[in-house]
Simulated scan of single mutants.
Amino acid sequence: MNRVLWVLLILGFTSCDNINSLISQNTEGQNPVARVDNKYLFEKDLKGLLPERSRPEDSVNIVERYIDTWIKKQLMLKHAEKNLAIDEAEIERRVQEYRFQLIIYAFEKKYVEENLDTLITDEQVKTYYEENLDNFELKQNIVKGVFLKVPKEAPKTKQVKKWLQKWDTDKQREKLNSYAYSYASIFHLNDSVWINFDEMIANTPFPDQISNKVQVLRKQRFLEASDSAYVYYFRINDSKIADQTSPLEYVDMQIRDILMNKRKLALTREFENKIFNEARRKNEYEIYN
């Protein structure tokens, strides 16, 4: 029987828990499952390929794709070597350089993970924000507000508007929260979070009704629209227009990522310099004229 079919047959009728152990039993035998000229793909090369608890049919597909990909790569390599004037020395140099980069990257990554100070304070975020305001210009309109999409057949739809207009009172908030969880198809009730205005009103009638978004955001605090199936309510508590400076809380996570990346780079450079200076102190290298 064809070796590929044999492996796939095993994968199809063996529980996924036993697949890896079954494959490993044939490691020493070097049983091939595919060949391109004198290059072979062995059963041992498939070990660890399959995720645990995968279904037999999924396992078959994974192995088939892996074998097909391996064959295509070998054929492309064969034709490339045949039809290109290859500088073997240059290829080897690049392979070594890539290997060095991978090893150094793994080494530095481990060092950074073990030594990086991951605590970034609110004060550090605020300081970076204030020193780099020009880098935080908004590219879109953002709002703080409350949004609900309610089926027309839902009860008390007219009451929703009254609750939204009195949103500042705890009593109205509680009523609207309870209503939203019971009847709304989609809702956003966290009015302390800045959100992208265009994303919030996408797939609603609002974009067709609003001719000037900037004017609406500056003057209106309540929007209502409907289609054949739903009523849409949007209470706008605050807004920022594109080209204005982003509020600090809107870019808080972005700044934390920036500061963390800066720390990683600084720690990496410090580590490289430490190794370099230590080697120089111990006379572990020299440069010949």
Rank of each mutant, 00 (worst) to 15 (best):
N135A: 08
L248S: 12
L267I: 11
V4S: 09
Q96D: 09
F271E: 10
R93I: 01
I287T: 10
S226Y: 06
E28C: 07
A184K: 10
D208C: 01
D227G: 05
Q30M: 13
A184H: 09
N196A: 09
D227K: 04
I236K: 02
L5Y: 14
Q25A: 06
K264M: 04
N26M: 15
K73A: 15
K175T: 03
K171G: 05
F197R: 13
P56S: 07
L217S: 12
D58A: 13
I86G: 01
I86H: 12
G48V: 00
T69W: 08
A34D: 04
R218Y: 01
V193T: 13
L77D: 07
L102D: 03
W163S: 00
K149H: 00
E286A: 11
I275W: 10
K47E: 10
A266T: 11
I258T: 05
E153A: 12
R263T: 02
P207C: 01
F276T: 12
V193F: 03
I275T: 13
G12K: 15
I210C: 00
L259Y: 01
L164F: 02
T118H: 09
N277T: 05
N135D: 12
N237P: 03
F13S: 12
N177Q: 11
L50K: 06
L11A: 15
I62R: 01
I258N: 02
N115I: 06
L50P: 04
S59Y: 08
I241R: 00
N132C: 10
E57R: 13
A279S: 14
F206P: 05
F271K: 13
V150F: 06
K78P: 02
P247R: 09
L265C: 09
A154Y: 08
L189K: 07
L22P: 03
N273A: 04
E113T: 12
E28H: 13
Q30K: 14
L49E: 03
T268V: 11
I287Y: 12
V214A: 10
Y111L: 12
Y181W: 08
K274P: 08
A184L: 07
Y250G: 01
W163V: 02
A229K: 14
L5S: 13
L84D: 02
N115W: 04
A202D: 09
L148H: 05
A279E: 11
A202F: 04
V251W: 05
L176R: 05
S226T: 07
D87K: 09
E199K: 14
R35Q: 14
I86Y: 12
P32C: 01
N203H: 13
N277G: 03
V143I: 15
K126H: 09
R94T: 05
D122H: 07
Q25S: 09
N18L: 15
P247C: 11
K47Y: 13
V60Q: 01
V231L: 04
Q244M: 13
E224V: 14
A266L: 10
M1H: 10
N18D: 15
S239C: 08
S226R: 06
G12M: 15
